[in-house]
Design a protein around this nucleic acid. Structure first.
Length: 562
RNA sequence: UGGGGCGUCGUCAAGUGGUAAGACACAGGAUUUUGGUUCCUGCACUCGGAGGUUCGAAUCCUCCCGCCCCAGCCA
């Protein structure tokens, strides 16, 4: 679209694929896959992987499969597969008809296992889990071979068949690859590839009581699907020798596994375990709480798919552990919303203003621009009358030097309306300002003075008699530490107690009465707000603040405090 | 004397022997009926450190230092 797009940096994975294309390693094909386990909700870290996998495929004219890695019936549920599909779709990616499940390959996987046994490359072990752990050795000492390691092929075949038939209880036997108990790589010390689990699977039901392990399943699933580049995170680097061993030993089609660093974001956590803790510990209202770094959370907060995709492109892909600044994500949202979000006026903390020289009982309509960045968005009419609300923060009785909003004796502009000058301040018995009385200049209708005089500030406002009331939720970062849980602290101690502020009597311009759930607006001078997809109702909207506008004044005021 | 990986600006990140891209952040300035947007300007004589090879090194070699991952019948 725009010619001034930020060029996306290249990365080592793209370079690898380009080399492979040049050498025609895969016959010009690029097939990737996004392989979530359906045991939880997707978060922004998954978005990086999704964007990488679908992005690389698209860039090279290839395809990306959606494959559920569902080999552990104890943890997986259909609820999760549904939410994952919804999220990937919402992010804007299309797997067309290539929706696969590792469980669809159970039969073939079983066949391959039989082959490994026949070749003498796998054996049924009858050691207990604890014994297997002891035999495995330690990081610095080699393991010991199981006494069952040299069972004859026929016995292995018989036992494995009986495992499948359900003759044994959970844990009685496992199938292990026969590799090298002395390997420095623990994954190669005769890894378990099948275990007995008499548990119903969300897709295969009671058909199977033995389930293949990840290392064995993943490489073969990739192979079966004709994947060219199997992109995964760094912690699987140690597993690559096993990935390669299985495919090489079985002499089947052999994709290339490439590992990249997972995403870390400042001021939040992205591990499934910690996310669960936030939900179950009641720190947030659920997986889709707008403060959560889940796709569902970002969506409810008002982040757009486009902004998340742009973010994923800009952070790049590399192998080094890193923590991306949350500010970049916020920047991507502002950049996107600045172009598309219609502007409206809403007063969050109302202060009443009475225009003393404006006739009582009368009102008029003023024309307001919907989006200065997009002329096609047109204009709308906003009602104006004698009693208005302005933001409390926009008035100071005794303003500091750099404050150029409303103050006693000072003149400012009400956006799209008139210049007003503060003439009187009304206080309650405690000395709190409850009302400001101003005079308006009828000649400045629309916001310009015919005599050319200038004002230093333009304020947003809402006509008191026409305003609709709304609940507005102000969200701030969930943690008050850039690296929650740093050092010895428990990460929950870094939860920001002020991450949510609920404002009840907010006054919004009437056009917002019909705001659609999930619609995005810029409340001028405040930020971008999203009508909550769960709680917002016509005539009674509820808005979530997605992100504030950049705010020079806030910085100046902050400096003044220090 | 286990194995695997990684160290380039405050934060990400290009760079693959020819003399340090870009983005965010930050700091100035211009424009502005959003202290928004936009637009200029500044921001690594230096690439974890020390040696070496070379006319020339972030890129090659050697040694050292630091950080991350691995001992699930989880993925």
């Amino acid at each position: 679209m725009s010619q001034t797009e930020t060029p996306t940096p290249s990365n080592f994975i793209r370079n690898f694929i380009q080399e492979d294309m040049k050498s025609n390693k895969w016959g010009g094909r690029v097939i990737t896959r996004f392989p979530p386990e359906p045991n939880g909700y997707l978060h922004i870290g998954h978005a990086k992987s999704i964007s990488l996998n679908f992005g690389m495929a698209a860039e090279f004219g290839g395809k990306c499969n959606l494959r559920f890695d569902d080999t552990n019936p104890l943890k997986e549920e259909v609820e999760y597969v549904e939410s994952i599909k919804e999220d990937v779709k919402w992010l804007g990616f299309d797997w067309e008809n290539r929706e696969f499940y590792a469980s669809d390959y159970f039969h073939q996987l079983y066949g391959f296992a039989v082959r490994l046994i026949e070749q003498g490359d796998a054996y049924v072990d009858s050691l207990s889990p604890e014994e297997i752990r002891k035999y495995r050795g330690t990081l610095t000492e080699p393991g010991k071979e199981s006494p069952y390691r040299d069972r004859p092929v026929t016995e292995n075949l018989d036992l494995f068949e009986r495992m499948r038939a359900g003759e044994f209880e959970d844990g009685a036997h496992v199938l292990r690859a026969k590799i090298d108990m002395a390997s420095g790589n623990l994954n190669m010390r005769d890894p378990t590839i099948y275990r007995i689990r008499k548990t119903a699977h969300h897709r295969t039901g009671d058909k199977w009581v033995i389930y293949p392990m990840y290392d064995y399943t993943h490489c073969l699933s990739d192979s079966l699907e004709g994947i060219t580049h199997s992109l995964c995170t760094l912690e699987f680097e140690d597993h690559r020798p096993l990935y390669d061993w299985v495919l090489r030993t079985l002499e089947v089609y052999h994709p290339r596994q490439i590992e990249f660093a997972r995403l870390n974001l400042s001021f939040t956590v992205l591990s499934k375990r910690k996310l669960i803790q936030l939900v179950e510990g009641g720190y947030v209202s659920g997986w889709d709480d707008p403060r959560m770094p889940t796709i569902q959370g970002f969506r409810r907060r008002g982040f757009t798919p486009e902004s998340i995709r742009t973010f994923c492109e800009r952070i790049g892909v590399a192998k080094r552990d890193s923590v991306v600044d949350l500010a970049l994500l916020e920047h991507c949202l502002r950049e996107d919303l600045n172009k598309r979000a219609p502007r409206v006026m809403g007063v969050l903390n109302p202060l009443k203003v009475v225009i003393t020289n404006y006739p009582e009982g009368e009102s008029e309509e003023l024309e307001a621009v919907n989006n200065p960045e997009d002329p096609a968005a047109g204009t709308r009419q906003v009602p104006f009358s004698r009693e208005l609300y302005i933001e409390r923060d926009d008035f100071m009785e005794d303003p500091p030097k750099k404050f150029f909003r409303l103050a006693p004796g000072r003149e400012v502009r009400l956006r799209y309306a008139y210049f007003i000058k503060c003439e009187e301040v009304i206080k309650d018995e405690d000395g709190a300002v409850v009302e400001v009385r101003c005079a308006y200049d009828p000649a400045t209708r629309g916001g310009d003075a015919p005599d050319g005089r200038k004002v230093k500030a333009t304020l947003h406002w809402v006509s008191a008699g026409h305003a609709i009331e709304a609940e507005v939720r102000l969200y701030d970062r969930l943690f008050n530490h850039p690296n929650p849980g740093a050092g010895k602290t428990d990460f929950t101690e870094h939860v920001n107690p002020k991450s949510l502020t609920v404002l009840k009597g907010c006054k919004l311009e009437p056009s917002l009465a019909s705001a659609e759930p999930e619609s995005l607006h810029q409340f001028e001078r405040l930020g971008y707000f999203c009508a909550d997809r769960r709680d917002s109702r016509p005539g009674r909207p509820t808005f979530n603040r997605s992100v504030t506008l950049r705010d020079q004044w806030a910085k100046i005021a902050q400096k003044g405090k220090k």
